[in-house]
């Protein structure tokens, strides 16, 4: 029976620097395999939607503007994403990847969580279409 076993550890802890990290004052690089925000490269995408089908969190929407011309927009909901990387596994054309750098995703409102990927004109066309549809849905204004 002895009581001194822990004392050595306690004394060593006294002279050692704190184990905690000084984040956010010091931002260390995340491990290279960290699964952060999803990225989509429209170049090779065929629009097969396998990523959408298996997403457990319903975080990916593939919007087809013109299937023949391969014009797609990917709408990604970072707030729903579970960061499991199943979509990355499913993609046969390596269009999807998860960033090891973009992981500070907190925001004060919901807007930054909806991310559009695709060519700029396609996103523009899609947003215009959405806006037009939203207008139609509104009840006719009184004259």
């Amino acid at each position: 029976m002895r009581i001194t076993t822990i004392l050595g550890d306690m004394l060593r802890a006294l002279v050692r620097r704190p184990m905690t990290q000084a984040y956010p004052a010091v931002r260390r690089d995340a491990p290279s395999r960290l699964r952060g925000q999803l990225h989509w490269d429209p170049e090779k995408c065929t629009g097969c939607c396998l990523c959408v089908k298996d997403c457990p969190a319903d975080a990916i929407e593939m919007i087809t503007l013109d299937k023949a011309a391969r014009r797609f927009v990917l709408r990604y909901h970072a707030d729903r994403c579970a960061f499991c990387a199943q979509c990355v596994q499913n993609c046969r054309f390596k269009c999807l990847s998860m960033s090891s750098d973009q992981w500070e995703l907190a925001a004060k409102d919901k807007e930054p969580f909806t991310v559009y990927y695709g060519s700029e004109e396609d996103i523009h066309a899609l947003l215009e279409k959405c806006a037009a549809r939203a207008d139609q849905a509104l009840p006719a204004a009184e004259p």
């Binding site: 699964r35 960061f83 499991c84 990387a85 998860m98 090891s100």
Partner: peptide
Amino acid sequence: SGNRVHYS
């Protein structure tokens, strides 16, 4: 794995 808790 890239994650601490849900290694997936």
